[in-house]
Amino acid sequence: MFGVPVDAWYTWLGLSIASVALVGVAAALPTAPPPAAADVAGTVDRTAATAHPATAEHPLDARAIRVEPGGIGLRNDAGTTHATFAFGPVTPAAGIDSLTAVLRGAPPGSRFDSGDALCTAAGTARERNSRWRSAEGPLIVRHVVWEGCDVTLVG
């Protein structure tokens, strides 16, 4: 009457399998939240909305970034998030040395002959297909107003 039931080993085996499955699910869960693309888009929008030249930086908690004229995508181990810009289009500066230099603080006149040349380069950059790039350091946003050209560079 007080002995172990005959089917107790079935119960033990079932609980063991369930425990192993639960540990596997818990190990697969991400340890960090997905990156906050909406916060980054807000920084870009605040900089793009100004009427004067401005620069801003936003720290990134992502491994990869994709900047498009109308939005941004961020990706890390926990997932991928996207956000659109309210003020745009913006110009992705990555991959074009002259735009990257201006984004990082070089005067536009040191890289371009005129405001038209800057606007042409920005237009060409907006037409390129965007791709995922490694996120190294903070996101930099620079709103440039120079010789009739008004662009917002992001990189």
Rank of each mutant, 00 (worst) to 15 (best):
M1I: 02
F2A: 10
G3D: 14
V4E: 09
P5I: 02
V6F: 11
D7I: 09
D7E: 14
A8R: 13
W9L: 15
W9G: 07
Y10D: 15
Y10G: 14
W12N: 13
W12I: 15
L13T: 09
L15F: 12
L15N: 12
I17N: 07
I17C: 13
V20H: 06
V23M: 07
V23Q: 08
V25F: 05
A26Q: 11
A26Y: 03
A28Y: 06
A28M: 13
L29A: 15
P30G: 10
P30E: 09
P33K: 10
P35F: 07
D39C: 06
A41T: 03
D45A: 05
R46T: 10
R46I: 07
A49K: 03
A49G: 12
T50S: 15
T50G: 15
A51N: 11
H52M: 11
A54C: 08
E57S: 14
H58E: 15
H58Q: 14
H58I: 08
H58P: 10
L60V: 04
A62T: 06
R63A: 09
P69S: 01
G70L: 09
G70K: 09
G71K: 04
L74H: 06
D77S: 15
D77Q: 15
A78R: 04
T80M: 09
T80Q: 12
H82L: 12
T84G: 13
T84Y: 09
A86Q: 11
F87S: 02
V90S: 01
V90H: 02
P92M: 08
G95L: 05
I96K: 07
D97M: 09
S98G: 04
S98F: 01
T100F: 11
A101L: 04
A101P: 01
V102R: 03
V102A: 08
R104I: 01
G105M: 06
G105I: 04
G105S: 07
A106D: 13
G109M: 06
G109Y: 05
D113T: 14
S114V: 00
G115H: 06
G115F: 03
A117C: 04
A117P: 04
A117E: 08
A117Y: 04
L118K: 00
L118M: 08
L118G: 00
C119M: 12
T120F: 07
T120K: 12
A125M: 02
A125V: 04
R126F: 07
R126D: 02
E127K: 12
R128I: 04
S130Q: 14
R131T: 14
R131L: 12
W132V: 03
S134G: 13
A135K: 00
A135Y: 01
E136A: 15
E136L: 14
G137S: 05
P138S: 08
V141I: 10
R142L: 08
H143W: 07
V145Q: 12
V145D: 09
W146A: 09
E147S: 11
G148K: 05
G148A: 03
G148M: 01
V151T: 02
L153M: 01
L153E: 00
